[in-house]
Simulated scan of single mutants.
Amino acid sequence: MYAYIKGKLVFKNPAYVVIEAGGIGYHVNISLNTFSLLGDQEAVTLYTWLHVKEDAHTLYGFADENERRLFLHLLSVSGIGAATARMVLSSVTPDEIQTAIINGNVPLIQRIKGIGPKSAQRIILELQDKLRKEGLLSPVKPTASQTVKDEALSALVMLGFARNAAEKVLENEMNKANGELSVEQLIKFALKSL
């Protein structure tokens, strides 16, 4: 319902913030990760998700779109509610939890308050393939030192292709052309093969 809220940060504590936007103060629940990323900014933008229950409408906010996507992935796991998903994102960084899920690191996930051995295994079982296909949730920003292949791979992963499949296709295309392709050409050839 709400994609994001942009406004003045009126109040901040580790559990929630109040953002004034358009003359309305929004009470937004946040993770410790978001709390640490907000710093001392006065004007903020939080990506939001509205949890509607019979007895309450609760707004959750995230420092970036990637943390919100991971939160929604966690909610899709049977037995994981909004409070537990927020606890997961408060206990470890989004990158750490994603890596733990992909690698099947049950002990790390189990250390999170409210997650037992069965829940940790269920999170891994239900999210491992989804997160592998998505690749890194963090936005991939090409740098000058990246090769043409790396930039093309980043673009394909952001388009939704599985990292492993994209890497194989890019490698084949690079070998065919002896490495003499621009990023655009490489992506076009790879899209035909994927």
Rank of each mutant, 00 (worst) to 15 (best):
T143V: 12
S154A: 15
G61T: 11
Q128T: 03
N33M: 09
Q121E: 14
T93C: 02
A190Q: 02
F161A: 04
Y26F: 15
V92R: 01
M174W: 09
K113W: 10
Q98L: 12
D150R: 07
A56M: 12
D150E: 15
Y26P: 07
P107K: 03
F35M: 04
L74Y: 03
R111G: 14
L191F: 06
E134C: 05
P94F: 00
A43N: 15
E151D: 13
K6E: 14
E151G: 05
G116R: 03
L46F: 07
V148E: 01
K149P: 04
I123M: 05
E96N: 13
L131S: 01
N103C: 06
N29I: 07
G23S: 13
I124N: 02
F62R: 00
L59M: 14
R111T: 11
L74E: 01
M158Y: 07
R163Y: 06
G7R: 02
K149M: 13
V17K: 00
I124F: 13
G160N: 11
V157G: 05
A144G: 07
G79V: 09
V10D: 08
I30H: 02
F71G: 00
L50G: 11
Y47D: 01
Q121W: 08
F11N: 12
G22Q: 05
G179K: 08
N66I: 03
Y60W: 05
L159H: 07
E134A: 05
D55G: 10
L153G: 01
H51N: 15
I5K: 01
P107C: 04
